[in-house]
Design a protein around this nucleic acid. Structure first.
Length: 437
RNA sequence: GGAGGCGUCGCCUAGUCCGGUCUAUGGCGCCCGCCUGCUAAGCGGGUUUGGGGCUACAACCCCAUCGAGGGUUCAAAUCCCUCCGCCUCCGCCA
C-alpha cells in the first residue's frame, strides 16, 4: 500500500500513477473520501469510549460505598449507583453502534487502499506492454544461415538430448508440464548451484523457503489483485502455491521491526514456482517456455527507502553477471508502466535471444517495490529517524526452464549437440558438450 | 488424527482460580541525566506498537493493543466460543 500522507497531500500524483498503469484514477477520490470518513469515525468513537470508561469506573467504588452505608446514606448511595448504571448502560449501547460504524468505515478504507497499486516511478516509460524502453543490448545473436544450418527449437534439441520429456509431462500432469531427464535434470542442478554460488559470493544469504503460504503472505506481496487468477489455491487448507520465492522471502520479516544497522538484508531463495497461466491459451504452447511449474533462484533485498534505487541497480548487476556467464545474447528493458504489476514502482527485465523465435524473450525481472510491500506486510525499520517502512526489491537470478530454452537454442551445433558455457562446466562434471542420445 | 499443557509491552516474569484499586508487576537489556581522575558500581528518570485530536511531523490529551477474532458485562489480561502458534504424549508416516 502507498503512504496515505502522499494521497492526502498530493492526490494528483496518485491519479497520474493510476493513469500511467492503465488503472482507475477514480479510486483515489473514493479512497480520500473513505479515509476522511474513517478518521471522523475514529475521533467519534474514541471520545465516546473515553466517556464510557469514565462512567463505568465509578461503579466499583459506588458499590463499595453502598455496602458500608446505612440509613438515609444508603438510599442516597443506591440512587447514585442506579443513576450511574443507567448512564453506563446507555453509553454502552451507544458505543456499540458507533464502533460498528467505525469498523465499517475502516474496512472500506482498507479495502480501497489494498486495491491501489504502487506509485509508478516517473522514469518508467509510460504505456502498455509494448512501450518498454531498451536500456542496453549485449552480445550478438548467431547467424545460423552463415553457419549453414537452421536452428532447431528447444523441444527438438531437448528431446534429442534426452533432456526434456513433454509427452510424459502431459500424461502425468497435463499441458504445460514436463519432465527434465538425464542431462536436462543435471542442467537444472548446475544452473541452480551456479546461481547460488554467485549470490553467496556476493554475500546474499541462501534460503530454501516454503512454497505454500498463507493468504496474508500472498495478499501482502500484492499477488491477489489483478494477478489473482494466476495463483493456485489449495482451498481445503486455505493455502496458496507461490508463483515466486519473492512471496515467502518478503513475508519472512512480516510484522517485524528491523534494526537499521542490520540493513541491507539480502537473501537468495530457491523455490518451485507455480502459475496457472490463465488467459495465456495459445501463447507459447510448445515446450517449456511457459509452464505451470518451474524452479527459480530469486534474490530479495530489504533496504532503507533512500537506498532502494541503488539496490535495484545492484540486483540488475548480479543478474547481468549471471547472464554474461551463460554466454547468451540479451537485452535489458525498462518495463512500461502498464506492465509493472501492482507492487513494482519500476522494473528491469532481461530478455534473452531465442533463435527459434528470432526475438528476445523475458528470462529475468528485477523489481523495486519501494515501501509498497513492507506497508502491507508490516515490515519496518528502526533508525535515528524513528520507525518507518523500508523498501523491498527482488530480482531473478535464474528461472530454470526459460534459461534452459535459451542455453540449448543459443549453444546448439549443426550436429544437434549443445556446447556448455565454461561457467557451467564445473557443475556438469567438466562436460563441455551435451550430445544427442 | 487423538489427549493434555502453554501463549503478558526487546528477553525473562507477576497477575488469570474469585472481572473493577491493572494508568499491566518486578528483573535484565537499552536510552537520558546525576555522581565520578577514567571505567564500573550507585542514584534518578525514561523505554510496546498502531490510530485519532491538537499542532511545528514538538509537548500534551484520547482510543486501541496481554497470540488473533468474536461473545457475555456498566466494566475483560482475567469468564465463554472459534481460530492460529509452540510444547509433551499416543497413533500414522517420507
Amino acid at each position: 500500500m502507498i503512504d496515505l500522507r502522499i494521497l492526502r497531500s498530493d492526490p494528483e500524483r496518485v491519479r497520474a500513477s493510476q493513469l500511467a498503469r492503465g488503472e482507475d484514477p477514480a479510486l483515489v477520490d473514493a479512497l480520500l473520501a473513505a479515509d476522511a470518513r474513517r478518521r471522523e469515525q475514529e475521533t467519534l468513537f474514541s471520545e465516546l469510549r473515553n466517556r464510557q470508561k469514565q462512567v463505568s469506573s465509578r461503579v466499583g467504588p459506588l458499590r463499595g460505598a453502598l455496602k458500608k452505608a446505612d440509613g438515609a446514606d444508603r438510599e442516597q448511595a443506591q440512587r447514585e449507583l442506579d443513576q450511574v448504571m443507567t448512564q453506563a448502560q446507555e453509553l454502552a449501547s451507544e458505543v456499540k453502534s458507533v464502533e460498528a460504524a467505525r469498523q465499517d468505515a475502516e474496512a472500506d478504507a482498507d479495502r480501497l487502499l489494498a486495491g491501489l497499486s504502487n506509485l509508478v516511478d516517473p522514469r518508467a516509460p509510460v504505456g502498455g506492454e509494448q512501450e518498454f524502453r531498451i536500456i542496453e543490448t549485449v552480445g550478438t545473436p548467431r547467424d545460423f544461415a552463415a553457419e549453414g544450418f537452421a536452428p532447431r527449437d528447444h523441444v527438438e534439441l531437448g528431446t534429442a538430448l534426452g533432456a526434456i520429456d513433454m509427452e510424459r509431462g502431459a500424461k502425468v500432469s497435463g499441458s504445460r508440464f514436463y519432465f527434465l531427464t538425464g542431462v536436462g535434470a543435471l542442467l537444472e542442478l548446475a544452473l541452480i548451484n551456479h546461481a547460488v554460488a554467485l549470490a553467496t559470493a556476493h554475500g546474499l544469504l541462501p534460503v530454501i523457503p516454503p512454497s505454500l503460504v498463507r493468504p496474508a503472505a500472498m495478499e501482502g506481496t500484492g499477488f491477489l489483485g489483478q494477478a489473482a487468477e494466476n495463483v493456485y489455491r489449495v482451498e481445503l487448507d486455505d493455502l496458496y502455491l507461490v508463483g515466486t520465492a519473492e512471496v515467502p522471502l518478503a513475508a519472512y520479516h512480516s510484522d517485524e521491526i528491523l534494526d537499521a544497522a542490520t540493513l541491507p538484508r539480502r537473501y537468495v531463495g530457491w523455490s518451485p514456482c507455480y502459475r496457472r497461466e490463465a488467459g495465456s491459451y495459445g501463447k507459447d504452447t510448445s515446450g517449456i517456455f511457459r509452464v505451470h511449474w518451474f524452479d527459480k533462484v530469486e534474490m530479495f533485498s530489504y533496504v532503507a527507502p533512500e537506498d532502494a534505487e541503488a539496490e535495484h541497480e545492484q540486483l540488475l548487476r548480479y543478474e547481468r553477471e549471471m547472464q554474461d556467464s551463460l554466454e547468451i545474447p540479451y537485452r535489458i528493458i525498462d518495463v512500461a508502466s502498464g506492465d509493472l504489476g501492482a507492487s513494482a514502482a519500476r522494473k528491469f527485465d532481461i530478455e534473452a535471444w531465442v533463435p527459434s523465435q528470432g526475438r528476445y524473450r523475458e528470462v529475468t525481472s528485477a523489481s523495486n517495490c519501494t515501501e509498497f510491500q513492507s506497508r502491507r506486510l508490516g515490515i519496518r525499520m528502526r533508525d535515528a529517524q524513528g520507525i518507518r517502512p523500508l523498501a523491498t526489491l527482488n530480482g531473478t537470478l535464474v528461472a530454470v526452464t526459460r534459461t534452459i530454452v535459451a542455453l540449448l537454442e543459443n549453444h546448439q551445433q549443426a550436429d544437434g549437440s549443445v556446447a556448455v558455457p565454461v561457467a557451467l562446466r564445473p557443475y556438469l562434471g567438466g562436460r563441455a558438450r551435451l550430445e544427442p542420445l
